[in-house]
Simulated assay, not measured.
Amino acid sequence: MSKGISGGCKCGAVRYRGELSDISSFRCYCRDCQQLTGTGHSEMFPLVAETFQLEGPSREYQMAGGSGQPTWSSFCSTCGSPLTRRSERMEHCLYVHASSLDEPEKHKPSRILYADAAQPWDKPNLDE
């Protein structure tokens, strides 16, 4: 797969591009991801932070992550589509929501995080 990747929000007002990180992609079932996406989990794709470029009206929401350190979620200011997650702990990368990718069909998570927080109607499984 090519290292370059691009994506954006539902309404098209925000676009981003960057290079894939060597860190594995994942499916996260933590409560933060559930609430930020409005579903049972998030599919996250890591990008190298220094290659990431974002254009368009976006906003960030700061919260405390599971470690207690700050994390940030960004979303389109116009349509509200979730775009990225980043944290102080992993400054060298940021994560884009797989559904915001131009080619989301290329995404296959390689691991599951926080399976114990999964809702009963969204069972952790990488085979789906």
Rank of each mutant, 00 (worst) to 15 (best):
T51H: 03
S25I: 01
R59C: 10
E60Y: 15
H92A: 14
S100M: 02
R89N: 10
S58K: 09
C30G: 04
G40Q: 00
D32G: 02
K106T: 11
E60R: 13
T51Y: 03
T71L: 10
C33Q: 00
S77C: 10
S24V: 12
I23S: 14
E91S: 14
G40W: 01
E60I: 11
V48F: 06
Q62Y: 15
R85G: 04
S87G: 10
K106C: 09
R85A: 07
C93E: 12
H97A: 06
E43D: 14
Y61L: 14
F75K: 05
E91N: 14
C93W: 13
P46K: 02
C79N: 02
T37N: 01
S21G: 05
F75Q: 00
Q69N: 15
L20T: 06
S74E: 08
M44C: 10
P104M: 02
R86D: 00
T37C: 01
A64V: 07
R59P: 05
V96C: 05
G65F: 01
S25Y: 05
L20W: 03
D22C: 04
F75N: 02
S77V: 08
P82G: 01
E60C: 11
T51L: 05
S77L: 15
G40V: 00
E19W: 06
H97I: 09
W72T: 02
K106Y: 12
Q69S: 06
P46F: 00
T37Y: 02
T78E: 15
T78H: 11
R86L: 03
H92I: 07
Q34N: 00
W72C: 09
S42L: 04
P57I: 13
Y61F: 15
E103N: 13
E103Q: 13
L83M: 08
S58R: 12
K106R: 15
E103W: 10
D22Q: 11
G80R: 08
M44E: 08
R59T: 12
G65D: 11
S99L: 12
R31L: 07
C28P: 00
S25V: 03
E43C: 05
G38Q: 02
Y29M: 04
S99T: 08
L47P: 00
Q53R: 15
F45S: 06
G18Q: 04
M63K: 15
S74A: 09
T39G: 04
R89G: 09
T78W: 06
